[in-house]
Simulated assay, not measured.
Amino acid sequence: MLTGYTIAILGGDARQLEVIRRLSEWDANLFLIGFDQLDHGFTGAKQVEMDEVEPSVLDAVILPVPGANAEGDVDTIFSNKLIRLTKEWIEKTPEHCLFFTGITNQFLIDVTTETKRKLVPLFDRDDVAIYNSVPTVEGTIMMAIQHTDFTIHSSKVVVLGLGRVGMSVARTFASLGANVKVGARKTEDLARAFEMGLETFSIHDLKDHSHDCEIVINTIPAQVVTASVIQNMPNRTLIIDLASKPGGTDFRYAEKRGIKALLAPGLPGIVAPKTAGNILANVITQILLEHLGEGSNA
């Protein structure tokens, strides 16, 4: 149980509701910041403004999946009010206070390093990424069906990157009968794709493999679907970019060529927020139980 622990949850989307629900069930004291438009409450949770929270009582702070921007601003769909995380505010939290985020950036790394607070980037964990690959794949299939006029079965699909998400995408589209090619940089990834029975190529040769593709699914967070690659694609090609913003596609040139290119980070929170929220809640609860016992409430 998390009885006696005090946690602030800053902003977010529907995934955070599952986190709130789980932590409430575990008897934590919750401050909800950026939820003033939420139409229902949670037992043991108080909806407050940022300046109404005393940071010194907090054992953990939970940011939404995108974290905060370079200025420390936190997005939320449940409020129109500005939520800003600052170094001065963080310094007022206890030394044992944990800061959870889905995705990290230089601002969060710098501000937690300077204040000597522990930052937990959840999406850097293998377990979270692998669990999240399930709703990500389902969302990708949904988008492919919605934005094409042909079946996935027998279609020519190029998957870029064979990380935790790329592997799930490649395997699932192949199981649906698509002709899947995998492009990757690492030789071990190409070997794994070969072992999976898929055609492979080096990402550096992408231009040579884009002339007849019908669906391109990118998972690499670097611009690999460049103008020269897009120039070689048929007009009917659909690009689904799953990489974190700004993606790995030259969207400007794709639009100029009349090729539909969709940036789709955060699909789990869109297509299955309950499942995605439960994934985060499970891991956050586990980490809190393992580590917060070392703090003042032990």
Rank of each mutant, 00 (worst) to 15 (best):
L280G: 10
R257A: 09
G183V: 01
N235M: 07
H147L: 02
V216P: 05
T140Q: 06
E255R: 15
I240E: 04
N235P: 12
D208I: 00
W89E: 07
V283M: 12
Q286K: 15
L38T: 05
D250I: 01
I62E: 03
A222G: 00
E25R: 13
A178K: 05
T249H: 12
L267Q: 04
T140D: 04
Q37S: 07
I239A: 10
I230F: 08
P94C: 00
T43Q: 12
T104G: 13
A281Y: 10
V216D: 09
A28I: 08
I9W: 08
V157F: 11
E52I: 01
I141F: 02
A14M: 07
R164N: 13
T136E: 00
L238D: 09
T148V: 08
L198T: 01
T200Y: 04
Q37W: 06
P268K: 02
F107H: 13
N179W: 02
G293K: 15
A298Y: 12
N69G: 01
P246Y: 10
K207R: 15
K274Y: 04
G293W: 03
I90K: 07
T104P: 01
T151M: 15
L58W: 01
L176H: 07
I33T: 02
H96R: 08
I287L: 14
V224T: 14
H153M: 14
E18D: 11
V271P: 07
T93W: 08
G258D: 05
T151N: 13
R171C: 00
L280F: 14
E290D: 15
D205P: 06
